[in-house]
Every structure is written in C-alpha cells, then in structure tokens.
Design a protein around this nucleic acid. Structure first.
Lengths: 329, 329
DNA sequence: CTGAAAGCGCTTACAG
DNA sequence: CTGAAAGCGCTTACAG
C-alpha cells in the first residue's frame, strides 16, 4: 500500500499537507489540494487505519455485546444499530458473548486495548462490580438488558409493565392456572418481568403455583421441553406466558403434535413480537418490544457521548411495551 | 491506560523485555518474566492494539460480508464462523452490505486500510472485475455466494443440484404446473439453482411457463405478494418452489388466510432449512444447506491462508445439499 | 497557507 | 538472556 510519504513525494509537497487534504482541513491551497487528490487516486492511496487510530486516539468504532446472534431479537437490534452507526460514520463490531462471563470480559477489553471508542451492552453476563472498572476507559451504556446497580446510561423497555400486560390479558381471557416460563431471577430484566406477572396475579387474587414457574430459556427446543413437562403434570396450567416468541413457538408446535388445541387447551403468550409470531398458526399473542427505536436511540446516545466526551453517569430512558393480540390466546 | 514504558519503568527492565513477556518469547529469565507479569497485573496493563497492528502489520481480524443480517441464514452462518474464528484466535467483523454495491466496496476497503487480515464474501454485490483489484491487499474468499469468473477460493453448495432435487420432488408428487420464485439471473447462485429447475423440468418433459417465474426475493412480505399474484392468475400453478424458507412461509401464511390448503391446493417448497421451516404448519419441505459446515470451512481456509501467506488462487470446495421432506408438499 | 519535528505505543533486527 | 535504536504511518502543535 502506498503511504502518505509516497503521496507527498509524488506531489512534491509535505506529508503534513497531504494529511490536511485527507482530513479536509481548511487552509490548503485549492490547487494543491487538487494535485494531492489526484496523486492519491493514482496511487490508490488509502490511509492506514492503525496509524490513524494510534495517533488520533480514536477508532470511530463501537462494539455491541449481545448474547446470541441467532436470536432474531438480537439480529434485528443489530440491524437497527448498524443503520444509525453507519449514518453517523461509525463502524459497529458485533460481539457475541454466548452467555459466557469470560467472553464478555474479553470483549469489554476492547475498550482498554483501544479497539473501540465505546461499548453498548445489549446483554449482561457479569455483575456491575465487574463491569464498573471498565468505565474508566470509555463510555459504556446498557441497551435492552440492565442492572439497576449500574451507574450507566440505559435505554431499556418497561419489562415490569410487559409482564403485567401479558398476564392481565391471560387473566381477562378467564385463565386462573397460569404458567410462567420467563424465568424469575437470572437477570434483572427477567426479574422485572416476573414482578409484573406477580402484580397482575395478585391484583386478580390468583395464587402463583411454584410448580408452574420455569427458568428462562431461549430456543425452540426449550419450548418443546416445557410442553413435555406441562403434559406430564397432574394439574397442568391452562395458559403459559413464555419468555420469548421462539419458546412460545416451540410450545405451540409440540402442543399441536400432541393434539392439543391452542388456545382452547392451552393458551400461549410470547414476548418480542418477532416476525415468527405472525407466521405460525395460530399467530402468537405477544408483547411487542420497540427494537428499532431502542437500537437507534442507544447508538445516538453513544455517538453523542463519544463526541461530547461525556462522562459516564447514570441516566435511564424507558420505552413502552405493548400487547399484540393474535390467535394463540 | 498504562503503556509498555510504564511497565518497564516500574520493573526497572527495558520495554524490549516487557514486549518479550507479552508475546511469550522464549529466552526471558523466568524470574524477570514473573516480575513483569506482576507489574502488568498491578497497572492493569493491556497492549494497545493499534500500536501492535501498526508495528506488526497484522490485525488478527477477519471481515465477513453478508447482505442481510436479519436473514436467519446469515445469522446462523455468522454464528458458525464466529465459533471457529474465536477458537483460532481471530476476531470477526460483521459487514452488512444491505445488497448495496457501494457499501460492499467500502467494506472491501477494510483490507486496504489494514483493518482486517482477510475478507470472507458470503454475499456478492459487485462484479469480479471490481473485486479483483482488492486481492492484491490480502486474502479474499467466497463462501455461499460465488462468481465463477472469480479467481478466488470458494466454499459453496451445489446449488444446481439443490434446484434439481426440489423440482424433481415436486414432479414426483404429480405436479406439472410448477412456479419458480428463486429468481433466474440476479446472481450466479440463483442462476445455478434455476438451471437445476430447468434440468428437472426438461427431464420430465414439462414446459416452463414464463408467467410462473418470479424474481428472487427474501422476506415474508415477498412471499405474501407472490401468493397474491398467483391467486389472480387464470392458470395458477399447483406448486411453487420458493427461493428461501421465509418466502415459503409468507406464501403459506397468505394461502391459509385465503382458505387455500397447503399442499392440496398449492404445494410449497422452501430453501435453507431454517428453524422456521419446522415450526410453521404445515412444516416446510425444503432444501437443507450445510450452513455450519460451510461457515466452519470458510474460516478454517481463511486462517490457513493468512498464516501460510497463501497467495489467492482459484480453488473450489462444493458441499452437498439435501431435500428435507415435510408437510408442505 | 505550508513544512520540520515530535510522538502515538508497540516490535524487531542488531549487537552484546 | 537483555537493551538501545529504528521505524510502522499517521497527525498535531509549533513556527514561519
């Protein structure tokens, strides 16, 4: 690759001037600017990004940490984020923690090693006390998942309300034995959702049967397993609130396989409003998360922080969740 | 951030020795090694990656260019690739071209700007003549999509055979009026699939009605639109071979909405064997692509090329495709 | 408007 | 086994 020196040599100008042209500085003679531009073109010159980063102390790159790229929720979030990032002149680096604490830690190191200007945590594996030391090295914000101990800016959804909305809907449909498969304590997001579930149940004077609480799972296979457990219960639930549409879809699929009618024999409620929810039969009643808005806002906030050299302090933007009624309930 | 100099100062050793410890060189006194390690720990030292890259002329990073991350095909491909890359000590950068030539070109520039050691093209927007000049700057390989003019290593699937397999299956089910919605000429991959369709039709002495050929589309909405077109035909097809499972799912969804029975009134065949294909009702008969194997192999090949300083020459590994029979045909 | 010089933080021959 | 020096390719005060 040609270097700035070669461009300088070819034009008879100094590297400084060439650099000024590259960086669009004012105060470069229009004529000389033209000459430099042509020389760069001819030599196929492109600035070496490592050198720029080393010298300029910025990378124009943002890392996003998620926990599972094959989850459509995350791929749509990434899609939305990338869109804004590109518009703002930033590159996005996708980091998949695969729910692994050590991997997340390695990915946070990108900030220390100066590979990125900031990190958006769309999932959260480590505790705040572990993450906190990294905030010294650049902006970190939460988007989607969160930890209320964390002194970080957050762009999140009102999960408690989501849990409440879904549960109340099931109750309104006449259900009294309601299973909950969103998990109760893995992370704060699931805890808050569960609190919404609790609130709705309490409001309706319904008891929560601990036998009907399932850990939070992600995939289709998990949904199938949950149905298998339900089918073998002496007192099965009449409705189930799943932790995500994929889980809901797995439950429905397996239910149909075993000649259960949805929603008559078992009502199923999802979460996320993924494209999938509308595709399967019956369509999944679900809680819509404003993914695009959340991703967009998180990147905007991050760019702002990087540019303004914001220090990282607590702030919280909460977006609303809404119920989408379909045929599975 | 602490620098190598500070570590050196703290230990009373030279930066050279510290560097040797960082890079696990032999010939460092075991004792001193220990001292350096402790100092790094205490200072929270992490090497600046831009400096390393600039000096070492390598990034240990590979870019993968895809055309649409929300396509489950690509998110699963990325997932498989990331898995191997991490194991081999490489970082993966996800580049979404969004089917845009200019964006793809910018992403190819990552090689020139030395941000990555190599590029895996999982989709292809530009012609070979446009891509060719970039091969001077580092290894580029094709994975999934391809261009047979390209003098590049490729890891691909036998698309012609896939098109043939699916079509023959529909013919065996007794269909004679078969629609094809995989596109006929956008890219070589779709062209080859279409050639398989043609071969099967010809073998069975069936005519291809041009009115039943649809461009290649991607999403659920496209599937719905296709069904709308079919429903308004005087001589509608009895079966349709879609370009992907999402399109097939869209067709099926819309068909059911209009009281069409699948497969009795319209048989639908997909492509990819995405999780979706098994979830919806009826399950989608589809052509399975060995995504994991393809992604794994591509990264292995790339790592090999980077390490061995392979020059980029033509080579081709073709993986087999197979028919998965479900209820939609 | 322009250029010489210093320096970002590393690693790699080279010499010992 | 160890260190001084050069240099990777840029950009940014500084001086003019």
């Amino acid at each position: 690759m040609a270097t700035i020196k070669e461009v300088a040599a070819k034009t008879g100008l100094s590297p400084t001037t060439v650099s000024r042209v590259i960086n669009n500085h004012p105060y470069v003679d229009a004529n000389k600017r033209q000459i430099v531009l042509e020389a760069m073109e001819e030599l196929g010159y492109v600035p070496n990004s490592s050198a720029r980063r080393l010298r300029g102390q910025r990378t124009d790159t943002i890392a996003v940490i998620i926990s599972r790229i094959v989850n459509p929720f995350f791929s749509h979030l990434i899609d939305a984020m990338e869109h804004v990032a590109a518009k703002e002149g930033y590159q996005l680096i996708l980091c998949d923690s695969r729910l692994d604490k050590k991997r997340e830690l390695q990915q946070l190191d990108l900030l220390k090693t100066k590979q990125v200007d900031g990190i958006i945590l769309a999932s959260l594996q480590n505790k705040w006390s572990v993450i906190e030391p990294f905030t010294k090295f650049g902006p970190i914000i939460c988007c989607n998942e969160y930890d209320s101990n964390a002194k970080l800016p957050m762009v999140i959804c009102d999960q408690e309300h989501g849990g409440y909305l879904g549960t109340r809907h099931l109750i309104e449909q006449g259900h009294k034995r309601i299973a909950y498969a969103g998990g109760t304590d893995r992370i704060e997001l699931t805890r808050d959702r569960y609190r919404g579930f609790e609130r709705a149940m309490k409001e309706a004077d319904l008891a929560i049967d601990r036998a009907l609480l399932f850990p939070s799972f992600y995939g289709i296979e998990d949904g199938k397993n949950i149905f298998q457990q339900i089918i073998s219960m002496k007192q099965p639930p009449t409705a189930i609130f799943a932790g995500g549409d994929e889980v809901a879809a797995g439950i429905i699929r397996e239910a149909k396989q075993f000649q259960y009618r949805v929603p008559e024999d078992l009502a199923v409620l999802g979460f996320d409003n993924q494209p999938l929810a509308e595709l399967i039969d019956p369509g999944i009643t679900t809680i819509d998360q404003p993914i695009k808005q959340m991703g967009t806002r998180a990147v905007e906030l991050m760019v702002e922080m990087i540019k303004e050299n914001h220090e990282v302090t607590y702030s919280k933007e909460t977006l609303p969740l809404q119920l989408i009624k379909r045929e599975s309930t």
